[in-house]
């Protein structure tokens, strides 16, 4: 015998200290903030309270350019193109979506951030990235 049921689960996500700074900067200033580690130099995005590379907590916020390189991508039919983007000045990559992506995508292509018009301190305040040119 098989039983199928559904249940509603409400939950609240607390962005915390570093996550809140990232989301507020996104909302108020249309800026993408990261964190630079004094111990190992790793620059993470979004902002963190401790370094994902070395676990130390002596970090300072840095503003990142709204531009970067396409690291990898995948297209989910009906849902769009999702991509990992290495922002200029950051180590590692940010997962987001591509807007109006051209037919031909290539690793290393230049992309630029596009912000939503009405913003609410949510990751969707960053509407996505548009491809602006070929890679290096």
């Amino acid at each position: 015998m098989i039983r199928e049921e559904k249940i509603q689960i409400p939950f609240v996500y607390a962005a915390g200290q570093a996550g809140s700074r990232f989301l507020v900067a996104l909302r108020d200033d249309g800026r993408i903030m990261g964190s630079a580690c004094a111990a190992c130099g790793h620059v993470s995005v979004p902002t963190r309270s401790f370094c994902p590379a070395c676990s130390e907590s002596d970090l300072s916020d840095v503003e990142l350019a709204g531009e970067g390189n396409l690291v990898s991508w995948t297209e989910i039919p009906g849902r769009g193109v999702f991509a990992l983007i290495n922002l200029d000045g950051a180590d590692g990559a940010l997962l987001h979506r591509l807007i109006d992506s051209p037919d031909k995508l290539a690793v290393g292509q230049r992309v630029r951030a596009q912000f939503a018009e009405t913003r609410k301190a949510h990751i969707s305040d960053l509407a996505g990235f548009v491809v602006t040119g070929a890679g290096p």
Binding site: Q8, I9, P10, F11, V12, Y13, A15, Q17, R21
Partner: peptide, 11 residues
């Protein structure tokens, strides 16, 4: 400083 929470209803 301001802290952000996001509420999500999941099924």
């Amino acid at each position: 400083s301001e802290t952000v929470t996001v509420t999500i209803e999941m099924e």
